[in-house]
Simulated assay, not measured.
Amino acid sequence: MQPPTRVLAPAPGPAPGPEPITADPRHEAKPALLTQSWLDLAFLHWAVDPADVAPLLPPGTVPDTHDGVTYAGLVAFRMHRVGWFRLPGIPYLGSFPETNVRLYSVDEHGRRGVVFRSLDASRLIPVAIGRWAFRIPYVWSKMGVRQDGDTLTYTSHRRWPGPRGARSALSVRVGERIERPTDLEHFLTARWGMHSSCFGRPLYLPNTHPRWPLHRAELLSYEEDLLAAAGLTRPPGDPVSVLYSPGVPVRFGSPPCIPAQRPAPARESSAAPTERSEP
């Protein structure tokens, strides 16, 4: 009696590389889950070591890098008229200042996105919905956006759930329109989805919007401890990139039906008399 021979399951294929960075959306967000506009955005970015932020990302993602470096972003703006499905945007509850701390991620399917470490917003009800319904780390803060000519000032002072008192205050002067953004500027702004987790499972939420109108911006002043409150070691020095955009309308789609995990590694079996690869 001959001993049983091994049956080899096919090895999983190689992981796809990250999708290309494109200035225009790679997909349509249909059906639309959320509609909103992002207005008067100031983008501040610091270069950070990928190894430092990898533990802060959700399962199934790794830091997305540009020339071996990843980035931590502080983005201040005005959220305008958030709407659900095909309902019109809500004037009061759906319009408020927001400041988020975000990281850059890529998942095992090659999809690039952002990971929000915190989102300070000035409306309590949207904060509660974001935290409890979508597991997004919204926090309630006292906030303001003031414009004086070509200068914008954004302030944020955290109320709940904490750490109480975490704050940011920054002022930028808007410069000339960027006709041809660099590869890095596209990398930092052209993001067509967010990575998160829901009840321990990976979640990818796609979005779409017109191409960013970007401007150079001069950082006049800033004080913040939101990065530290989000679990990041404060990068040394000033931001390496400061940009401004008047804004875009945005649509978020439903999560796509893509398996959360890759196939399991090949396993051995003794159930068949000859060696072959299973279909």
Rank of each mutant, 00 (worst) to 15 (best):
H209M: 09
L184W: 13
P202I: 06
P206H: 09
E224F: 02
S221C: 02
L220K: 01
G193I: 01
R191V: 11
M194Q: 12
L220A: 04
E218A: 13
R191H: 07
L226W: 00
L188W: 09
R180H: 11
R216P: 02
M194E: 09
H215M: 05
P181K: 01
L219A: 01
C198S: 13
L205G: 01
W212L: 02
W212G: 03
H209T: 12
H195C: 10
T208S: 15
F199H: 11
G193A: 01
G193N: 02
Y222V: 12
S197E: 14
H209F: 05
F199G: 03
H215G: 04
H209A: 07
S197M: 12
F199C: 08
T208N: 08
C198A: 08
S196I: 08
A190S: 15
F199T: 07
A190V: 00
R211F: 02
R191T: 07
W192P: 12
P181C: 00
S196F: 07
S197A: 13
L188G: 09
T189Q: 03
L203Q: 14
H195N: 06
L203G: 08
D183Y: 07
M194N: 14
H195L: 07
L184P: 08
H195W: 06
R201Y: 07
W192V: 09
L214P: 08
E223T: 14
P206N: 11
W212Q: 04
A190T: 10
P202T: 09
T189V: 15
R180S: 09
E218V: 06
W212R: 00
W192C: 13
E179Y: 04
T182C: 03
S221M: 03
G200F: 12
P181A: 04
D183C: 05
P210L: 08
G193R: 00
G193T: 03
M194P: 00
E224Q: 15
L226D: 02
P213H: 04
T208Q: 14
F199M: 06
L226S: 02
L220D: 02
F187V: 02
P213G: 01
L214R: 08
E223G: 13
T208A: 15
P202F: 07
A190H: 11
H186Y: 09
D225S: 10
C198L: 13
I178S: 00
Y222P: 04
T208H: 10
G200C: 06
T189P: 05
A217D: 04
D225V: 10
S197V: 03
Y204F: 15
R201T: 09
L203E: 15
R211H: 03
G200S: 06
E223P: 06
H186L: 15
T182E: 04
E224N: 09
L184Q: 10
R180Y: 04
F199D: 13
E224P: 04
L188D: 05
L219N: 00
P210D: 11
H215A: 03
L203K: 15
A217I: 09
N207P: 10
T208K: 05
N207M: 14
E185M: 11
L226A: 02
Y222M: 14
R201M: 06
P210F: 12
P213R: 09
E223Y: 03
E179I: 13
P210E: 10
T182W: 03
D183Q: 13
M194L: 15
R201L: 12
